[in-house]
């Protein structure tokens, strides 16, 4: 394929750090989004993830729709 020829026009000493930096920034953004939009990551970092899993399952059960009484 032709992609390897990229390094004929983009210096590897510029292109590779740029590529790795972009992956790092993207990964940092995803982790930040997870931290700010979920509760269980914070609980995990506080060492109480196990209860977070149980609690998430119990809240799902309690929110279940009421069954029709015939």
């Amino acid at each position: 394929m032709i992609y390897g020829r990229l390094w004929l026009v983009v210096k590897p000493t510029v292109g590779i750090p740029l590529l790795l930096g972009a992956v790092a920034v993207g990964s940092f953004a995803v982790h930040t989004a997870l931290l700010t939009n979920t509760s269980w990551v914070k609980k995990f970092l506080n060492g109480s993830a196990a209860s977070a899993v149980v609690q998430t399952q119990s809240t799902v059960a309690s929110v279940a729709p009421p069954t029709l009484q015939v």
């Binding site: 390897g4 390094w7 004929l8």
Partner: peptide, 12 residues
């Protein structure tokens, strides 16, 4: 970049 095609393909 001053690279030959072989070098570029190797890096890639």
């Amino acid at each position: 970049t001053g690279l030959t095609e072989g070098q570029a393909l190797e890096i890639h």
